Every structure is written in C-alpha cells, then in structure tokens.
Simulated scan of single mutants.
Amino acid sequence: MRGADMAAWDEFDRPSYERPIEGLKRVARYQRWLIAVVLAQLALWAGFIALTILGRGREPDMQFPVVLTLILGAVGGIFVFLLSWELRGAFAALVFGLATVVPCMGLLILTMVSGYATTELRKHGVKVGVFGASFAAIDERPSLYDDEDAGW
C-alpha cells in the first residue's frame, strides 16, 4: 500500500495540510454537540442519583433515565460518526459510531473523539475552550498562508 493509496490514508496527518475553514467549522460544531451530549448524560445521572438518595424509602423508576440515556446515546453516536468521518475517515467513523452503543463505553468514546477534535483544531491554530471552539476563534486564527511578507 504505497503511493496514491497511502497518500489518501494520511492526507489529514501531514504537517503542511491546511484544513479548509468550512471543515474546521464542521469539526467545531460537531464537537460542541458532543460536549452537550456528555454534559446532558452526566446531569441526567447525577440528578437521578440525587433523587434516589433523597427518596430513601421508594424504589426508583428506571424507565425514564434509561430511555433518555438511549436517546442521548443515539444522538451522541450520530455526532461521533460525523466527527470521526471528518477527522479520521469512514472506517474510524463506523467503528467509533458503533462503539457508542456499548453502555459506559459510549461516554468514553464521546470524550475520546472530542479530544481528537480538540487536537485537530489546535493543530490549525484555533483556540479551544472547555465547551469547544467558537466560529469566531476559527475566523480569527492565524493561517499558514497569511504571511504579508511573502514577497508579492
């Protein structure tokens, strides 16, 4: 697997590759949705545990949190698939998307793919905060091709 096949595989990993602004904005958008899903799952289960502790004598009803977890997992799986497709390609998107279905491992996959997005955005000079990158940070980033002293 040499030549053109290999070039297509590691195109995004080359140091000189500059991802288009539209691609960076897609990565930032998908990452923000992933972070929202992770926070929603954490809030859901923290609230469920708190309500279970406060209602000491009663049996907790598991139907609502389980259904909501499945819905959040499906939404997270979609955004993991889209983000992985953008960053790593079709095979990684399929593997990571299917891995989010596994209970407890899904949250780990969501966090890991969000970390991949952070690395990619920072590699292209975008400032990434706790809740991801904003579109303004993408527009204001220094570009490899913005050299005013290029000799033209």
Rank of each mutant, 00 (worst) to 15 (best):
Met1Phe: 13
Trp9Arg: 14
Asp10His: 12
Phe12Asp: 13
Asp13Gly: 06
Arg14Phe: 12
Tyr17Met: 05
Arg19Thr: 12
Pro20Phe: 09
Gly23Val: 06
Leu24Ser: 04
Lys25Asn: 02
Arg26Ser: 04
Val27Leu: 07
Arg29Lys: 11
Gln31Ile: 08
Trp33Leu: 04
Trp33Lys: 01
Ile35Lys: 07
Ile35Phe: 11
Ile35Cys: 02
Leu39Arg: 11
Ala43Val: 08
Ala43Phe: 12
Trp45His: 13
Gly47His: 05
Phe48Ile: 03
Ala50Trp: 14
Leu51Phe: 12
Ile53Asn: 03
Gly55Ile: 01
Arg58Val: 05
Glu59His: 15
Asp61His: 13
Val66Gln: 11
Ile71Asp: 00
Ile71Val: 15
Ile71Cys: 02
Ile71Tyr: 05
Ala74Asn: 00
Gly77Ile: 06
Gly77Asn: 05
Ile78Val: 15
Phe79Ser: 02
Phe81Val: 02
Trp85Pro: 00
Glu86Asn: 06
Leu87Ser: 04
Ala90Trp: 14
Phe91His: 00
Ala92Phe: 10
Ala92Pro: 00
Val95Ser: 01
Phe96Ser: 03
Gly97Cys: 11
Gly97Leu: 05
Cys104Arg: 06
Cys104Ile: 12
Met105Asn: 00
Leu107Gln: 05
Leu107Met: 08
Leu108Gln: 04
Leu108Ala: 14
Met112Trp: 14
Met112Asn: 01
Val113Arg: 03
Val113Pro: 01
Ala117Gln: 10
Glu120Lys: 04
Arg122Met: 14
Arg122Val: 09
Val126Gln: 09
Lys127Leu: 09
Lys127Gly: 02
Val128Cys: 02
Gly129Tyr: 11
Phe131Trp: 13
Phe131Val: 07
Gly132Trp: 10
Ala133Leu: 07
Ser134Phe: 11
Ser134Cys: 05
Ile138Gln: 04
Asp139Ser: 15
Arg141Met: 15
Arg141Ser: 11
Asp149His: 13
Trp152Tyr: 12
